[in-house]
Structures are given as C-alpha cells and as structure tokens.
Amino acid sequence: MVDSALIGKIEKARRYAEERDRFHFISFAVTVRGENNTHHVRYHEGNWTCDCEFFQHRGTCAHTMALERILEGML
C-alpha cells in the first residue's frame, strides 16, 4: 500500500518535471556510445568537453551537439 505522503511527493515530482525552468544544470558527466567508441562528455558551468579527437581540435563534436539537442531549453 502506498501512503498519502508518498503520493503527494509523486505528484510534486510530476509537476516539477513539467516546469523545466526550475532546473539549472551546473555539472554532469555522460558516456556516449558512438559508432566506433564510447566517449566521455562533461558539462560544467556552461562549458562542454569530450574526450573524442574531433572535439580536441574543434571545441565541439557530434557527442556534445547531440546532448545539446536532447537538453534543449534546459541548459
């Protein structure tokens, strides 16, 4: 049986998830399984890094751009 306090928290979580402007990402790390290798992507205070060779030369890559699309409007 689910208690009423938990039901209230579930409802609050659902509301928060719909109100995306409540969230501000400061830092996180993600692994991205590419076509050839798995890459480690980090976001910290508005800046992306990726361990792939393309990012090292260009400062952006398919991995960071994919995450920007996924998180559009949240960063």
Score class of each variant (00 low, 15 high):
residue 1 M to E: 12
residue 1 M to Q: 11
residue 1 M to R: 10
residue 3 D to G: 10
residue 4 S to P: 06
residue 5 A to V: 11
residue 6 L to V: 14
residue 8 G to W: 00
residue 9 K to T: 02
residue 10 I to G: 02
residue 12 K to S: 13
residue 14 R to K: 14
residue 15 R to M: 11
residue 16 Y to K: 11
residue 16 Y to L: 13
residue 17 A to R: 10
residue 17 A to I: 08
residue 18 E to D: 13
residue 21 D to Q: 09
residue 21 D to I: 05
residue 22 R to W: 07
residue 24 H to W: 04
residue 25 F to C: 09
residue 25 F to R: 06
residue 25 F to A: 15
residue 26 I to C: 04
residue 27 S to V: 04
residue 28 F to H: 06
residue 29 A to V: 08
residue 29 A to P: 00
residue 30 V to M: 12
residue 31 T to E: 11
residue 31 T to S: 11
residue 33 R to E: 14
residue 33 R to C: 03
residue 34 G to L: 08
residue 35 E to G: 13
residue 35 E to C: 01
residue 35 E to Y: 06
residue 36 N to F: 09
residue 41 V to S: 00
residue 41 V to G: 03
residue 42 R to L: 05
residue 43 Y to A: 00
residue 43 Y to T: 03
residue 43 Y to E: 02
residue 44 H to Q: 12
residue 46 G to H: 04
residue 47 N to M: 08
residue 47 N to I: 06
residue 48 W to Q: 03
residue 48 W to S: 02
residue 48 W to D: 04
residue 49 T to H: 06
residue 49 T to L: 02
residue 51 D to K: 03
residue 51 D to A: 06
residue 51 D to Y: 02
residue 53 E to R: 12
residue 53 E to A: 14
residue 56 Q to C: 05
residue 56 Q to V: 01
residue 57 H to W: 07
residue 58 R to E: 14
residue 59 G to T: 07
residue 60 T to W: 13
residue 61 C to M: 06
residue 61 C to V: 03
residue 62 A to L: 13
residue 63 H to L: 02
residue 64 T to S: 02
residue 65 M to P: 00
residue 66 A to T: 15
residue 66 A to Q: 10
residue 66 A to N: 10
residue 66 A to R: 12
residue 68 E to N: 08
residue 68 E to I: 07
residue 69 R to K: 15
residue 69 R to T: 13
residue 70 I to Q: 08
residue 71 L to C: 09
residue 71 L to E: 02
